[in-house]
Amino acid sequence: MNIRKIIEILGNKKAGFLLTMVMVLSLISGSLVMNMNVDIYPPFFEFDFKYFFYPVQPVHMWFYFLLIVSLAYSINLVFCVIEQFLLVKKIKNIEAKRWASILAHIAVIFALIAHLIEGSTVKSNYVEISKKPVSINGFGSFYAESIQEKFYPDGKLKDVIVNLKGQKADGTEFDKIMSYNNPVTFTAGIRTILIQQITSAGSSIVLKRNSDGKTLPLDYQGQIKTPEGLLRLAGIEKTKSGFWLVYLKHILKNSEEKSIYLTGSEDIKDACSLTQNKDYFLCRHMNIVIKNETYSFFKVIETPVIYALVKYNPGVHFILPAALLMCVSLILQMLSTQKKKPVL
């Protein structure tokens, strides 16, 4: 059997037609299975193969079948394109329509590769972006220099403009604007930071001097000098009862660190539930002494916080050429429909 015959068999149109129909049927069954098993398939979950293999479950059978059919379909598609190319070599005046068809098929191959790469390598997680710097592996560290909300006349949220500053994983500084439908991207689009929601959280605290009531503000970037060392803000959280719990770090001159928890809650158990520490002693710091003056928790300043999705998807580098090839194919197809005569 010569190579030409093998190409003809593997790129058979009828086989391709039937394989596509089987793929359609497995997608239909997958859609129904996903809709009926809400507990297994969370709504709007991403294209991640690991989800289907760790662990392997009978309920994912439709997906395993889809993978096998897709593989057979891809082989058929590749040989179909090869066959088309061999045909093109023979013809002198090639219609734009034929090129459109070849490019569309190549675009589908690129799209399939993109999905294969995405499915096996995609990683994502959610982070809260505020003035407090956050560090993500591969992305570097960043924080929101400013968060500006825009509203409609009826008070509903229209957009959020975030000035994101930080340092990439390679050490270079960046200063970018992020908003809805306008993510911050790195590594030519492989890594993205996207706004998902906006909420509010404590960004800084105000301590009150007990003797005269004078206030002392402290945010994540700031520090207070004490006779023993430096006092820094390390976290602000809300208890189940709605009281603030402030976590401070006292860095002593001998580099030793001490944790201090301040709370506005009188219920120590409630406050301690957030510290995940059973040692109630840690939660009993209702006051803190700085330069012989006793300070207590006064209030928390709330500012907007971005609930963002941080995503790593190397498949992007294949989906972009796929989209581009498909667009060229569409244009060629339109030209051939209008002229109805060979243009190439």
């Binding site: 709504p43 991403e46 294209f47 993510p183 689009g189 993205t192 996207l194 995503k311 998807n313």
Partner: peptide
């Protein structure tokens, strides 16, 4: 989808 959710495809019905 890529600009809003970081994904051009999701398992959405």
């Amino acid at each position: 989808g890529y600009l809003a959710w970081g994904a051009y495809f999701l398992w959405d019905p």
